[in-house]
Simulated assay, not measured.
Amino acid sequence: MDNSVSKEVQILYKNLLDAWNNRNARVMADLFTEDGESIGFDGSQSIGREEIFSHLKPIFDDHPTARFVSKVKDVRFLSSHIAVLRAIAGMLPHQQTTINPKVNTHHTLVVVKKDGNWRIQLFQNTPAQFHGRPELVEQMTEELSQLLK
């Protein structure tokens, strides 16, 4: 697949994280397809733009959410209109400058192109706790911390 198309998918992911980091539930929800799905870090599931918005709005209204720092690891095209993006992400707690390794995560997006626009069909935010392997947590945190320099 063309590198510029891969960039379009990566920009969609960046826009998703920017919406989170700017605490904008409407913008974040609108990046999804009408029946898109979001699975949160805690396992909560929201299906459809309006449910995603309704889930996110009180989080942003009532909590000082941490900011994402991420690194795209792979973009794989299943067809010219369907792609899977995998990334790793860490979070900077409110008013802090170092990543909290307890909430490192793997992000997976399934994106589809409809009417000329890429939209998120599925966003899954999976904890990267690496049970019993603290060196992997440290390795991921270091890789993400390099992005802050």
Rank of each mutant, 00 (worst) to 15 (best):
M1Y: 07
D2P: 14
S4V: 13
K7L: 13
Q10S: 09
Q10Y: 05
Q10N: 10
Q10M: 09
L12K: 05
L12V: 13
L12C: 10
Y13A: 12
L17T: 06
W20R: 02
N22K: 12
R23Q: 13
N24H: 01
D30M: 11
E34N: 09
G36K: 00
S38H: 13
S38V: 10
I39N: 04
S44L: 13
I47C: 07
E50N: 09
I52E: 05
I52L: 03
F53E: 09
H55E: 14
H55S: 15
K57Q: 05
P58I: 00
P58T: 00
P58V: 02
T65K: 09
T65F: 04
S70Y: 14
V72D: 11
R76W: 13
S79A: 02
R86P: 11
A89I: 06
G90L: 09
M91Y: 10
L92A: 03
P93L: 01
H94V: 08
Q96C: 10
N100E: 08
N104P: 10
T105A: 15
H106S: 15
H107W: 09
L109P: 06
V110S: 07
V112A: 06
V112H: 03
K114L: 10
G116S: 07
N117K: 12
N117C: 14
W118F: 02
L122E: 05
Q124K: 08
F130R: 07
G132M: 03
L136H: 01
L136E: 11
V137Q: 06
E138C: 08
M140V: 07
M140I: 07
S145D: 04
L147I: 06
